[in-house]
Simulated assay, not measured.
Amino acid sequence: MDTEAVRSFVRAAEFGQLQHAADELGVTQQAVSKRIAALERALDVRLFTRTPRGVELTLDGQAFLPHARGIVAGVDRAVAAIRPGSRALRIDVLGLRSAQAVVLHDYWRSHPEIDLDVVTLRVTDPREAVAAVQAGDVDASFRSVTDPATLPRDVRMVHAFDSPLELLVGPRHPLAAARTLTPARLRGHRIWVPGIAPGSEWADFYDQLTTTFDLRIDAAGPNFGNEVLIDILAASADVATLVGARDRYLWPPGHDLRRIPIAGPTLAYPLSLILRRANPHPALRAVIDHCAGLAPSPAATWRPSWALSPGRGDRPVDAPP
């Protein structure tokens, strides 16, 4: 099937005018008409009915249109996969207030000439993020595969940076006056982290964190968003949550929430970048270098078993007895 004929059909369907489709494609109206006629012969159906105002889809044309759009999108992704420098650098983050988005924003402010597209795939299974990277939907994804041996051969995962955890509490919480906290001091306190998706990398992270430090992580209930969580923390005397040190949270001044660093050891969520081995976007190397230049984690830092080495000599630390 001639993909350019399919593209001409899609544009003609969108505009309802062969001339408008031709103008966008940079060809003559006659060329568009010939392409569509050849496509109709190949499919053995009529796709359009000519009207005084232009063209209208037949029933067969209406049925074919969504599939034709998929074909055009697939061709565009295929071309972008081998010519990544011809478009914006597209990176997936978990959320626009997450540490990953904050770090990318800091990088872009230093390099405003970079054409950067920050997206959120809204997937919880890291395999879906890997598939998006393979398909060329994104150039890289801030995700971690907890078993790197399962990664496809054409995809690799590199350490980006560590995100140290902080305890977020309201003013009535027993730990609210602390300047820093050790993991041992968190024992027995309810740490509410709603919306932990089974099978996600963060589900495995919290499982290991709970087991290693004997913490009480409560994942009960749906995740209604940060605003609801913050309201509950502000009014509660016994509920706390864990946030990343670089995560961006905003709350009304009257809430008087406190972010308390955790040390002895530091608890770090390791953030990695998943990217293709061949033909990565040329702007991606600078982003990786920017992440590598961030302040290193303390020597005494705990990470989950699947964390990649940051390459700065700091290593995971076992939990204290």
Rank of each mutant, 00 (worst) to 15 (best):
D207Q: 14
F213R: 01
D238E: 12
R216W: 15
F224T: 13
L209W: 04
I217M: 05
S236Q: 11
D214K: 06
D218V: 11
L233G: 08
A220K: 02
D214I: 10
T211W: 13
V228F: 11
I217S: 03
A235E: 10
A235G: 07
D218I: 14
D238H: 09
V228S: 08
D204Y: 12
F224M: 11
A219I: 04
L215N: 02
S236E: 06
R216T: 15
A237H: 12
L229N: 08
A234N: 02
F213T: 03
A219M: 05
N223Y: 15
V228Q: 11
F213S: 02
I217Q: 00
I232L: 15
F213V: 05
G221R: 03
I217Y: 05
Q208A: 13
W202G: 00
D214W: 05
I230E: 01
Q208K: 08
G225K: 06
F224K: 13
G225S: 05
D238Q: 06
F224Y: 13
G225D: 04
T212P: 02
D207P: 00
I232A: 11
A220D: 14
T210I: 10
L233Q: 04
D238Y: 07
G221N: 08
I230T: 12
L233P: 06
Y206I: 09
I230R: 00
T210N: 01
L209G: 02
T211R: 13
I232W: 01
P222L: 07
A203P: 04
V228H: 11
Q208L: 14
A203I: 09
Y206C: 02
I230Y: 00
A237P: 12
L209K: 02
D207I: 08
Q208D: 11
W202H: 12
A237G: 14
F205S: 01
V228C: 00
T212E: 14
V228R: 08
D218T: 10
L209Y: 03
L229R: 03
E227I: 09
A235Q: 08
A237F: 10
R216G: 04
G225W: 04
D214G: 13
L229T: 09
A220F: 05
N226R: 10
A235R: 14
Q208H: 11
A219R: 13
A237T: 12
L215Y: 07
V239P: 00
D231M: 06
D238N: 10
G225A: 08
D207K: 14
E227L: 10
A220L: 10
T212Q: 06
